[in-house]
């Protein structure tokens, strides 16, 4: 699957703004981004439900429409709900039959953890169970690529755990899975590779570890006490600087060197050193409030600068 220079605009809004992304067979990839980052638009184009304004989406060497028609794609769309007045087995049997080489219905039910619910009417299931039915719908045709758009929104903790358990069991069979989420931990725990999307672009791409390292290994913070913040980005190891109130937050690839230099300059006031979490990494990547000169190795720019001031931690759920 490959996106090259894909742009999708809705009037003035550039929902997807020059997206480049390649996914190989067998990968489990998370598209991570805030609400409105362009994930769902990206997925709609991947499935051929939306044509890109410019650029190209290729799937298995053809267009998404061809791949869909050949039965190589299965998907769980956002906000979809299973249709009423059918049983779980009837629904999965129907979907499987539309594909050329489906898996056995019993296998699809087993993978989604639905064996005991097979005879139940779909409209009488709990939210978590219904979501697993939709997962079974996505994989019933044994497609080469399964796409899941925010599969766990609206699920409680238990529902989410059961869902990811089912998803991992499926990915272990060697299937290619692309899912979108705005939960960092979900991306970290369930994907081999995380693609961070912001303002319709890929801002980081790699494993959870790579992304954390790319952004800077640790967060060093201290009180400025009214002192100037000029030159702090020049300190050894520092990759970015953020001022929060009267506190300077330095992201550092080498926190020891940074702290030694701060001590030499006599700036150690209320000093804290914390390991960067993926959440920190995510916020750095998706926020242009940082005055970083340039990003780390795997980070390709921090997205458009305008409009990004609205980005806050509050946007993350």
């Amino acid at each position: 699957m490959a996106f090259s220079g894909v742009v999708k605009t809705y009037g003035e809004v550039r929902a997807v703004d020059g997206l480049d992304l390649t996914v190989d067979r067998g990968e489990t990839v998370a598209l991570l981004g805030r609400n409105g980052a362009g994930k769902s638009t990206t997925i709609s184009m991947l499935l051929g439900l939306l044509p890109p304004t410019s650029g190209e989406v290729r799937l298995f060497g053809g267009t998404p429409e061809q791949a869909v028609r050949q039965g190589r794609i299965g998907a769980m769309l956002q906000d979809g709900r299973p249709i009423p007045r059918v049983t779980v087995r009837e629904l999965i049997t129907f979907v499987a039959a539309t594909y050329p080489k489906p898996m056995a219905v019993s296998e699809a039910l087993a993978l989604a953890g639905l064996e005991e619910l097979a005879g139940q009417r779909v409209d009488r299931l709990s939210g978590g169970q219904a979501q697993r039915v939709r997962f079974a719908v996505a994989l019933a045709g044994d497609p080469d690529l399964v796409v899941l758009d925010e599969p766990t929104t609206a699920l409680d903790v238990e529902g989410r755990r059961d869902f990811w358990q089912a998803m991992r069991a499926y990915a272990r069979r060697g299937n290619t899975v692309v899912f979108s989420t705005h939960y960092l931990t979900e991306a970290d725990e369930n994907a081999d590779r995380i693609v961070v999307v912001d303002h319709g672009r890929v801002v980081a791409d790699g494993s959870g570890e790579t992304i954390k390292r790319a952004v800077g290994g640790a967060l060093v913070s201290f009180d400025l006490a009214g002192g100037p913040s000029d030159g702090l980005t020049e300190l050894p190891g520092v990759t970015s600087l953020e001022i929060r109130g009267d506190r300077a937050l330095l992201r550092s690839a080498d926190s020891d060197a940074t702290v030694l230099e701060l001590a030499r300059l006599g700036l150690v006031r209320g000093l804290q050193v914390a390991p960067a979490s993926l959440e920190d990494a995510f916020l750095t990547l998706t926020s242009s409030r940082t005055d970083a000169a340039d990003g780390g190795p795997a980070v390709s720019g921090t997205g458009a600068s305008e409009g990004a001031a609205a980005v806050g931690e509050g946007a993350l759920r």
Partner: peptide, 17 residues
């Protein structure tokens, strides 16, 4: 009703034309 539930969209990504 099916349109509201997203079922028509779901059908569009099955091989059924």
């Amino acid at each position: 009703e099916d349109k509201k539930l997203g079922w028509l969209r779901q059908l569009r990504i099955t091989p059924l034309s």
